[in-house]
Design a protein around this nucleic acid. Structure first.
Length: 450
DNA sequence: TCTCGCCCCGTCGGTAGAAG
DNA sequence: CTTCTACCGACGGGGCGAGA
């Protein structure tokens, strides 16, 4: 690790970038599905810069380079030619729950990793590196060093220290024995520091520098004032003690920082990442479980995700991108091929839907779009004997429709409607058998369990 | 060790262009 | 149309050398 190097220069990151590129070369030599590539990106590529990112602030330029590598690999795979990038990169970043693909946001990851040092500084005892940092930069309070102002030397700690306000916002102070916490200045109650809440009383108090342990005794608070309080100040004092009532008393454990965003109060990089990444594209009602938690192959999950984003390359989407082929739907040949038509409203597709709808005598009105279709379909799961199997039906229909459509589009062949129905059922049977390791001898057996 | 000021490099916003 | 990339010019943070 190049500790002495200029941490701002992008040169020290070249090695990381090249490592990623080398890794890609071997992956590119084999055929991988979109889902496979996504898995590789999420599990391997994302973690390659972690080591460097845990110390150095990653320059935006490097993030851009790494993003470009990941982006191109995801969408273009092993092909040499350019391909469509169907969804904007920003929208892939972010958890699957919120409509992304779970690709890591390197900037946020970097922040979270660097905050870990601040957390350790505040909560660890007697670590050698902590003593070193304490000596060099001096502590501002019990929790962090002073701001780094000097301009000479490397700026590693400066960069880390810059995140302190952000970390502090998301932490509270948990009083143990009260030895570290300043009564007036630290904000150890929910509302903030007492000094800012009650400046008038602060001025009158004689223990302005005292720690909590000095002001508190088992009998209660020992506060002494410079002069007797006036009548009009009494009400303020009542409020003041009202707020202090939250305090449950001291204990024998050490005072510590408490991370606000999980139950045990321990900071973790993962939790921090989750917290700080949450602002990106809040999507309410995104049916992520119906896309990612159903028992289907990952590549099909990805396909369903694309469908739900309305981003699959149908004729309509091709036209939007300036490529004009036949605008007609390949299945029925009647209407324009939009995502919603091809997968929901086309009369050929409807034949596939009705296999399952008729099987259960379902009263079904085709929803307007994919997301609604997923949701409404799963709301009927209760009528099925096997809820998990029920939920894979829409994706099963869509996947077989898409395969048929591509057969007609690219190979100029077509299957009869009977054959399509059969293919769809066989696929359904196959997925059931794959995922549940059950003996399902025939397609009819699989259907029978619904 | 510290301050000052210059200047380099990286970032940002805007724009144009390419590509599937 | 959508996304990505390259380019330009403005700008400012901070690295670094000079000087104390």
């Amino acid at each position: 690790m190049p500790l002495g190097a200029e941490s701002k220069s992008s040169g020290i990151w070249n090695e990381v970038v090249e490592k990623c590129e080398r890794r890609l070369v071997s992956w590119k030599s084999q055929y991988l599905s979109f889902g496979g590539r996504l898995t590789l990106i999420n599990s391997v590529l994302d973690s390659m810069p972690t080591y460097m990112m845990s110390i150095f602030p990653i320059p935006d330029g490097v993030i851009n380079r790494l993003d470009a590598i990941r982006r191109n690999f995801l969408w273009e795979g092993n092909s040499d030619t350019k391909k469509f990038h169907l969804v904007k990169w920003d929208k892939l970043i972010g958890s699957k729950q919120k409509g992304g693909l779970g690709v890591r946001n390197l900037k946020i990851q970097n922040q979270s990793l660097m905050m870990k040092w601040l957390w350790r500084l505040a909560s660890s005892e007697h670590a050698l590196w902590k003593e070193l940092i304490k000596q060099k930069y001096e502590m501002e309070d019990h929790w962090s060093t002073k701001m780094v102002t000097s301009t000479y030397g490397t700026s590693i700690w400066r960069a880390i220290r810059n995140f302190w306000p952000k970390l502090r916002e998301n932490c509270s102070i948990k009083i143990g024995n009260g030895m570290k916490v300043s009564f007036w200045e630290d904000s150890w109650l929910e509302q903030g520091s007492l000094k800012t809440l009650f400046p008038d009383i602060y001025i009158l108090n004689q223990q302005q520098k005292d720690i909590v342990a000095e002001v508190w005794s088992n009998q209660g608070w020992n506060l002494s004032f410079r002069r007797p309080l006036n009548d009009w100040e009494i009400q303020r004092l009542v409020d003041f003690f009202g707020i202090l009532e939250q305090f449950k008393g001291t204990s024998t454990s050490q005072d510590g920082l408490f991370w606000n965003h999980n139950c045990n109060g321990n900071f973790s990089v993962k939790e921090a990442y989750k917290k700080f990444n949450s602002f990106t594209h809040q999507v309410t009602g995104w049916p992520w479980k119906l896309i990612w938690k159903v028992k289907i192959p990952p590549k099909v999950s990805c396909f369903t995700w694309l469908l739900a984003k309305q981003a699959v390359l149908t004729q309509e989407n091709l036209m939007k991108r300036g490529i004009h082929l036949s605008p007609r739907c390949f299945l029925c040949g009647e209407e324009a091929e939009t995502v919603n038509h091809l997968f929901l409203h086309c009369r050929i597709t409807n034949i596939l839907w009705s296999i399952f709808i008729n099987w259960k005598d379902l009263f079904w009105v085709m929803p307007r779009n994919i997301v609604q279709a997923l949701k409404i379909w799963s709301s009927f799961a209760y009528i099925s004997g096997h809820k998990e199997r029920w939920k894979i039906i829409p994706t099963c229909i869509w996947w077989s429709v898409w395969k048929e459509r591509n057969l007609r589009c690219f190979q100029n062949k077509s299957n009869s409607i009977q054959k399509m129905k059969l293919n769809c059922l066989v696929l359904f049977h196959f997925w059931c058998k794959q995922e549940y390791m059950e003996d399902l001898e025939s397609v009819m057996n699989a259907l029978g369990t619904l």
